[in-house]
C-alpha cells in the first residue's frame, strides 16, 4: 500500500485539505472529492482539454497531473470564472454566438480562453486556433468557438478602455 500524502489546495478561492494516494489525478480530486464537476473527463489521455483548469496562472490539463503535484497551488475552474447570475464575458459570448453544441468541451474551452485572452488580448483567428489547440470539440463547432472568443475579446477590450 502506498503512503498517502497530505495535500492543501486553494480551489476557486477556497482552501481544501485532504489525504490522497499519490496516484490520484487532479481531475478526480476536483470532481469526486471536492464535487467541482465543471472540468470534464473527455479522453483522459491529455488530448482533448475538457479537464483544463488554471493552476498558478497557467492552463493545465488536470487529467495529466497528480493531486500531490498541485500541493500549495491556486486552482481556478470554470466555477471560479462565472456563474448563472454573473456570466464571464466569454460565457456570454459563447451563449450569444452559439459557441457550443453539446457543451461537453465548453468548461475547458472557456477556462483555456480566459488565459489566452490574458496572453493575447486581441488575438487573430490564427492565434486563437493555435492558442486553443489543446482543446478539442467533437461537435466540430470550431468556427463559432473562434467567433465567440473574438466577440469576448472585443467586449473585454471595450470594457477595459471604458474603465480607463
Amino acid at each position: 500500500m502506498s503512503k498517502k500524502k497530505h495535500v492543501t489546495l486553494n480551489v476557486n478561492g477556497k482552501t481544501e485539505e485532504f489525504l490522497a494516494e499519490p496516484r490520484e489525478l487532479l481531475i478526480y480530486t476536483l470532481r469526486e472529492r471536492l464535487n467541482i464537476t465543471g472540468p470534464h473527463i473527455g479522453c483522459e489521455t491529455s488530448h482533448c482539454g475538457a479537464c483544463t483548469v488554471t493552476i498558478d496562472g497557467k492552463s493545465v490539463k488536470s487529467c495529466t497531473m497528480f493531486a500531490v503535484q498541485a500541493e500549495g497551488a491556486e486552482i481556478t475552474t470554470i466555477e471560479g470564472i462565472g456563474g448563472p447570475d454573473n456570466l464571464h464575458p466569454l460565457q456570454e459570448a459563447f451563449k450569444e454566438h452559439h459557441g457550443l453544441q453539446c457543451g461537453y468541451c465548453t468548461p475547458g474551452m472557456i477556462t483555456r480562453a480566459t488565459k489566452l485572452l490574458e496572453e493575447i488580448p486581441n488575438p487573430t483567428e490564427a492565434e486563437i486556433r493555435f492558442g486553443m489547440a489543446g482543446n478539442l470539440c467533437r461537435c466540430t463547432g470550431y468556427q463559432n468557438i473562434v467567433k465567440s472568443i473574438q466577440a469576448a475579446a472585443a467586449q473585454m477590450s471595450a470594457a477595459k478602455e471604458a474603465a480607463e
Binding site: 497557467k58 492552463s59 493545465v60 490539463k61 492558442g131 489543446g134
Partner: peptide, 9 residues
C-alpha cells in the same frame, strides 16, 4: 511542442 497546456508542464 504539443499544445499550450502541455508546454506549461
Amino acid at each position: 511542442i504539443g499544445d499550450p497546456a502541455v508546454r506549461h508542464r
